[in-house]
């Protein structure tokens, strides 16, 4: 169902302004969606477990800033060793996520609270590192992620697609992926059948952190800079996107592909409102109403007994 909503939206916006359906505009949508998709995929792994992760704004900002500092440390160009910074940022993201998962699963704090607090810590650490300022990167080779286009789409879009496929494979083809669904479906049953719940939870949060770091690196590629607000708004938007795409907040329903469709729906709405020239001040309200409509249309209501 969500895919039909997406198609309907595309048709709707195209009918109001034919320019919507152009390669140039699709590239614009893809650029906006790329970092956003990484965050949504990350949080989807957590939502499948029936938990929630609210640390993404901190994770994205902190990884982005660490990436920038490391990049500058290694000479400020990709050729001089800046590629090490990418590995450092992604490794850091995974560690940040693992700590987040450890605090939640080992100390038995509900993920909503532990991840919210870890988000504060992440943003706080970013402010601390940057002193509230902005870190800039202007290496032409690294910025090719945005500037070099292949078939009309910048390289960063292909990077996002690659990690989308990785995400799908992790979800479908790995033990971790199966265990996420087992825990989300019925944790006590999963535990009784020998699923290592603690290990899986920490791994899942670590994986989510890895994807937030990817989003951080892509944000830097897109904007050429990092600061404490690099991840702003991603928290509510990414969870909204996952739900709109058909990932259920109570766990075990939906997956990475749903996150993709949800991200596209939200990005298309945001882009479409600009393309058809809707005034700024009503865009938040319209987005809200359309999101509700999208969720209503995509929910299989006969399968849901109650909703929180």
């Amino acid at each position: 169902m969500p895919i039909i909503v997406l198609i309907a939206l595309v048709v709707f916006f195209t009918s109001l302004n034919p320019n919507f359906m152009s390669l140039r505009n699709f590239a614009r949508i893809a650029i906006a969606a790329s970092p956003f998709l990484m965050v949504a995929i990350g949080v989807t792994f957590i939502i499948i477990m029936g938990s929630i992760d609210l640390s993404m704004e901190g994770g994205v900002a902190l990884s982005a800033v660490i990436f920038c500092f490391a990049f500058l440390f290694f000479g400020g160009t990709l050729a001089s060793g800046g590629w090490v910074a990418i590995i450092a940022a992604l490794g850091f993201g995974a560690a940040y996520g693992a700590l987040n998962g450890f605090i939640h699963a080992k100390l038995l704090i509900p993920s909503f609270m532990s991840s919210l607090a870890m988000g504060f810590v992440g943003i706080g650490a970013t402010v601390l590192l940057t002193g509230g300022g902005i870190v800039r990167i202007d290496d032409d080779v690294f910025r090719m992620l945005l500037t070099y286009r292949f078939q009309g789409f910048p390289l960063m879009v292909y990077v996002a697609v690659f990690f989308l496929i990785v995400g799908i494979l992790i979800q479908k083809k790995t033990i971790l992926g199966r265990n996420l669904y087992a825990i989300g479906g019925a944790e006590d049953l999963a535990r009784a059948s020998g699923v290592p719940v603690l290990k899986t939870r920490i791994l899942a949060f670590s994986l989510a952190g890895f994807y937030y770091a990817l989003a951080g690196v892509l944000q830097v590629a897109k904007l050429g800079q990092a600061e404490s607000v690099t991840g702003a708004n991603l928290m509510f938007l990414s969870i909204t996107a996952a739900v709109v795409g058909g990932v259920a907040l109570w766990g075990a329903i939906g997956g990475v592909v749903n996150a993709l469709i949800g991200v596209l729906i939200v990005t298309v709405i945001n882009n479409g409102m600009v393309v058809i020239g809707l005034p700024d001040y009503i865009q938040d309200g319209v987005l809200g109403l359309l999101v509700i409509a999208a969720v209503i249309l995509s929910t299989n209501r006969s399968a849901v007994k109650f909703v929180k």
Partner: peptide, 10 residues
């Protein structure tokens, strides 16, 4: 409409 309150209130 069984929309989670997370979404409806947002």
């Amino acid at each position: 409409f069984l929309v989670p309150s997370f979404i409806s209130t947002l």
